[in-house]
Design a protein around this nucleic acid. Structure first.
Length: 599
RNA sequence: GGGGACGUAGUGUAGCCUGGUUUAACAUGUCGGCCUGUCAAGCCGAAGAUCGCGAGUUCAAAUCUCGUCGUCCCCGCCA
């Protein structure tokens, strides 16, 4: 094969009068009888090839070309005749007059058109992913993903970080997500687990003295899938020694500033704002607040606790709270629409959705609502004041246990923002750090305290005393040195300062009711490492797929992953997972009860 | 484990609510023909669907009912 001169998509006016060799796929053929145009496509884009009838043999050959044939063209780059320039194409000023055509391969008729305009179901796209990946959008997403990964590597390397690979075949650890298991042939009956994250290994690397580690690494979790969750996903994982929270936070802020400028020429403001976990729950009803718009939740419990409206007062009496959210200009929405919002709130777990439309705020507020008769003018006035409502607003209320009220209103807040198009600037990027997380949360299903992040998170200095007093202490008051990074309401990642002393780690396990024997079996290796001079350390992991999805404006991380899986965890391209042969099972000393397909 | 939406030529949709006037429509692609400046080319013509699968109701089912499979969204679960 003759050497390729340029990528198709890179031919420009400066190449005019050059003889070039181009290779690519036939994107489309426009046959005018006397002249044939071919759009030739490769990963960099399209260029127009012209076949003219004076070269009879060549012309006849070009008539046989069909979509997705792979061809080589030798031709002369020339300026397009006046009036035929195509401003939509980067190559639109020029065209290549074919002098030779080599058909390198034919193609079946593709299952769908390789067009940026065609609309194809995701099921079909995944089955023919190799065709889907020829389309501009998906291709560009992966290219951007590559550039960002490289930019991150470059930045971290410049900061003295060392990329070290950690094992995929590793050990199952309790806490956190369900593990993917891999049977061991050499140790029949034993299983490796695929890592949910390199957490333990990166901490051990700190003990080893590597000081600054990072890895762009695949992680695995055997949990149900979502638009932003795949069973295997990629994290930017890093860990540092001799640092505190602010070092990690600053590093990530600078890294993102550099990477976004470098790859997309986007400027972001640093430092990012910070908010405590508690404030985030209070004001946004969520620990991953979308701060692109205001519309904060307001707690009106004190105002309504002694009102005649029993739904509110009884809820407060039984330990619940009443929270509200104010929708600007919401008074115009119809009762049908309000009912629909109430249904939404009920689906999210609320018992109902009360509302007040603000007609006038006056000296005494004028309101419209089926529940206004239960409140005194004084109470109504306070509600309007506290929620900072103005005429034409509507206030929604949820009375329930605090976490239900927060959750429902937090979700309703996002729902309203979507429905009434409240986020005007779609390109804005609102980063925010959430800090001061509780170290533990109560698990109703397991009837014990579990780690909010993971069991290696360092408690705050001032809370160490509380840990010693367990179980007499107030466990919810123990705060961890953890931080989450949130971008536009999406949790991008999180990290913490870790425990580097064995005795503290053991006391944490005690609170978590992970018994000593189990502790030793599961991660005795880490505890052992901690006794051999573990330095103070901490780190963070960022969800790489989610980050790229936000940057590309995609709703699903499947759009930034070359070969993703469906919601049932199936790969339509390869048909994985699949049954295996009896021979393979026998080698693993595994018998299964499920019906087997003969193999 | 639960809730919801969807499944009709290669692809994307309409038809379904209100069963029969449907020989299942439209767009695009495919195939054949015409055409020397198009570029999401155009014009003429053709082929292409047992309406996801199974059962039921009915004189009659793409249409109604039940089950089942698959895809997507969400809750639970999960950093």
């Amino acid at each position: 094969m003759e050497k390729r001169t340029y990528y198709c998509g890179k031919v420009r006016a400066e190449h005019i009068e050059q003889i070039v060799n181009l290779y690519g796929w036939v994107h489309s053929r426009r046959d005018h009888g006397g002249v044939i145009f071919i759009d030739l496509r490769d990963r960099e884009g399209l260029v127009q090839i012209v076949f003219q009838p004076d070269k009879k043999e060549l012309f006849n050959k070009a008539e046989k070309l069909k979509p997705e044939y792979v061809i080589g063209i030798k031709g002369n780059v020339r300026r397009r005749p006046e009036g035929t320039v195509n401003p939509k194409l980067p190559t639109g000023e020029v065209e290549v007059v074919a002098e030779n055509l080599e058909i390198l391969n034919t193609s079946e008729v593709p299952a769908f058109e390789i067009s940026d305009f065609s609309d194809v179901s995701e099921e079909i796209r995944l089955k023919y992913r190799y065709l889907d990946l020829r389309r501009t959008n998906l291709k560009e997403n992966l290219v951007l993903r590559h550039h960002i990964a490289q930019s991150i590597r470059k930045y971290l390397t410049g900061q003295g970080f060392i990329e070290i690979e950690t094992p995929f075949l590793t050990k199952s650890t309790p806490e956190g997500a369900r593990d993917f298991l891999v049977p061991s042939r050499l140790s029949p009956g034993s299983f490796y687990a695929l890592p949910q994250s390199p957490q333990l290994f990166k901490q051990i690397l700190m003990v080893s003295g590597f000081d600054k580690y990072f890895q762009i690494v695949r992680c695995f979790r055997d949990e149900d899938l979502r638009a932003d969750r795949q069973p295997e996903f990629t994290q930017v994982d890093l860990e540092m020694s001799f640092i505190d929270e602010n070092d990690i936070i600053t590093l990530i802020e600078n890294m993102l500033t550099n990477v976004l400028k470098d790859t997309m020429n986007i400027d972001i403001k640093v430092p990012f704002s910070r908010m405590s976990y508690q404030q985030s729950l209070d004001e946004y009803g969520s620990d991953r607040p979308d701060t692109r718009f205001d519309m904060k939740l307001t707690n009106v419990t004190e105002i309504v606790e002694s009102s005649r409206f029993k739904v509110f007062s009884e809820t407060v009496k039984s330990g619940g709270q009443v929270k509200s959210i104010c929708l600007k200009d919401g008074a115009k929405i119809s009762n049908t629409e309000i009912n629909r919002l109430a249904e939404f709130a009920i689906e999210q777990g609320a018992k109902g959705l009360a509302w007040l439309k603000v007609i006038d705020t006056g000296p005494l507020p004028e309101l419209e609502s089926p529940i206004k008769k239960f409140f005194t003018d004084e109470e109504l006035k306070k509600i309007v004041e506290k929620t900072k409502s103005v005429p034409n607003d509507i206030i929604f209320f949820v009375a329930d246990k605090i976490n239900v009220a927060n959750n429902v209103l937090g979700t309703l807040r996002l729902h309203l923002a979507e429905k009434f198009d409240i986020i005007k600037d779609k390109k804005t990027m609102e980063f925010i750090w959430i800090t001061d997380f509780p170290l533990f949360e109560w698990s109703e299903t397991e009837k014990r305290w579990v780690s909010m992040h993971h069991p290696f998170t360092m408690p705050r200095e001032q809370d160490l005393g509380l840990i010693d007093k367990f179980p007499e202490c107030s466990v919810p008051d123990i705060t961890g040195r953890a931080y989450d990074l949130v971008l536009n309401g999406v949790e991008l990642g999180g990290g913490s300062i870790r425990i580097h002393k064995m005795d503290l780690q053991n006391r944490i396990f005690k609170i978590l009711k992970i018994d000593e024997k189990e502790t030793k079996e599961r991660f005795g290796f880490l505890l052992s490492a901690l006794t051999y001079g573990a330095p103070p350390h901490g780190g963070i992991a960022l969800g790489f797929d989610r980050f790229i999805a936000i940057l590309t404006g995609e709703d699903s991380i499947r759009e930034v992953i070359a070969f993703p899986k469906t919601q049932k965890g199936i790969c339509p391209l390869t048909n994985a997972p699949d049954v295996v042969s009896l021979k393979q099972l026998k080698e693993l000393d595994i018998e299964i009860k499920l019906p087997q397909r003969d193999k």
